[in-house]
């Protein structure tokens, strides 16, 4: 052993001995523990309804179900007045007039 450690060895040995004594006394007094258990649940309940004017209903259940009643009304533009129209009916014709005489000899 080197001469330079001759002076500090007794100090280290003394410190270790003091720590041993402390730890021994602490064990003798009893350790404290805290256990935490968490049981948690989260429930999200949602209900939605969408109304697009009465009487149309939109109900959403387990997906999307759309029930809708709709009435479509189309008003045609007023028809233009019928064009003035006339029918011209013509009875015409030609006659072939023929006179014949028969003779027997």
């Amino acid at each position: 052993m080197s001469d330079k450690y001759k002076d500090v060895f007794p100090l280290i040995a003394g410190a270790l001995a003091g720590l041993f004594i402390y730890l021994s006394r602490k064990k003798a007094l009893g350790a404290q523990e805290l256990n935490v258990t968490v049981n948690e649940s989260v429930s999200i309940m949602t209900e939605s309804s969408l109304v697009i004017g009465a009487p149309s209903d939109v109900v959403i259940n387990d997906g999307i179900n759309v029930l809708t009643d709709a009435n479509l009304s189309v008003t045609a533009p007023s028809p233009p007045p019928p064009p003035s129209e006339i029918n011209v009916i013509i009875n015409d014709g030609a006659n072939i007039s023929t006179s014949a005489s028969l003779s027997v000899a």
Binding site: S84, D92, I96, S97, T98, S99
Partner: peptide, 26 residues
């Protein structure tokens, strides 16, 4: 006759009859 005005649609049905008439004698 018939009065028509501008734009009047005039449908013309022109019926033609051809016939033969006459006599024969003996």
């Amino acid at each position: 006759g018939g009065s028509v005005s501008t734009g009047t649609k005039i449908n013309i049905y022109f019926y033609i009859t051809v016939t033969v008439s006459g006599s024969i004698s003996y």
